[in-house]
Amino acid sequence: MSTFWIILTGALVASACGIVGCFLVLRRMALVGDAISHSVLPGIVIAFLISGSRDSLAMMLGAAAIGLVTVFLIQWFHQSGVQSDASIGVVFTALFAVGVVLVSLYTRHIDLDLDCVLYGEIAYVPWNTIELAGIDIGPKAVWGVGIALALILALLFLFYKQFKICSFDPAMAAAVGIPVALFHYLLMGLVSVTTVASFESVGAILVVGMLVVPPATAYLLTEKLGRMIAYSVAIGCASSVLGYGLASLLDASIAGCMIAVAGGLFLVALLFSPSHGVIFRKLRQKRMIRHRTAS
C-alpha cells in the first residue's frame, strides 16, 4: 500500500508541475520555480513560529504569501533595470538566507529539518496521514498536491486561451484586452501553490526538476501547446513510476531517482526526437547537403 501512495504522490506532483512548467519553459522563466522553491523557506518558518504548530495550512499560506512576494520583487527589480536572471538570483538567495538564519535562531531544537526541506523525503509520505471523522483518508501529501492539481486544472480549463496567448505573444494579448499582468501573477501564484504543496513532502529538488525537465522534454517532441502539456504530464508520471523502481533497486533516495529518470528521458528526447533531436537533425542536414550537391 505504501508503494502505491508514494507513486501516486510522485505522479500527482509530476502532473501539477508538468502542467505549470510548460508555461514557465515557454515564457523563459524556468528558474522562477527554483527561486520560489527556495525562497518559501522563511514563509514556512515564520508561519511555524506564529502558529506554533506544523499545521500544513498555516505553513502553506505563509509559503504561498512569500512565493508571491518573491515574484513581485523579481519583477520589480527587473523593471528597475537589473537583468532578470540576476534579479531572480538576488531575491531568492536573500530570502533563503533569512530562512536559514531564522531556522538556526529559533527552531534549533524543534523538528523542522533543513535537509528535509531541501531534498524532502517522499518515502515518509504514507505515514503522514490525515483523518476525517475518525476514518483514515490517506496521506496528507496526496490531498495537498491533489487539491493544488485540481486548482490548476480548473483555472486552466477556464482560461486556457488567455494563458496560451500570454505565453506566446504578450504584446498581442495586451492588444486584444487580456489583463496580461493579472495572468502573469495568476500563473506565478499557481507555481507557488504547486511548489509549496509539493515540496513539504517531496523536497524542493523534485519540484524544481519536475517543473522544468518533463516540459522541456515535451518541448522537444511537439509543436502544439495542448500536446506539449499532455506529453509533459505523461513523461512526469512515467519518471515517477520508473524512478520508484530504480530507487528500490538501488536503495537510494526516491526523489533523486525520479529526477534522474526524468533526466534520462530528456537525454533520449534530446538525441532521438524526430523533429528536434540532435541525431535526426544531423541526418537531415547531411541528406540536404547530398541532395544539393547531386542536383
Partner: peptide, 23 residues
C-alpha cells in the same frame, strides 16, 4: 543544439545533476 533557452537548460542541468547527486 536545440530550441531550449538558456534558463531552461540551466534548470535542467541543475536539477538532474543534483538529483543524481542525492542518489
Amino acid at each position: 543544439h536545440t530550441r531550449i533557452k538558456q534558463d531552461a537548460a540551466l534548470a535542467i542541468v541543475l536539477s538532474v545533476f543534483f538529483g543524481i547527486g542525492i542518489v
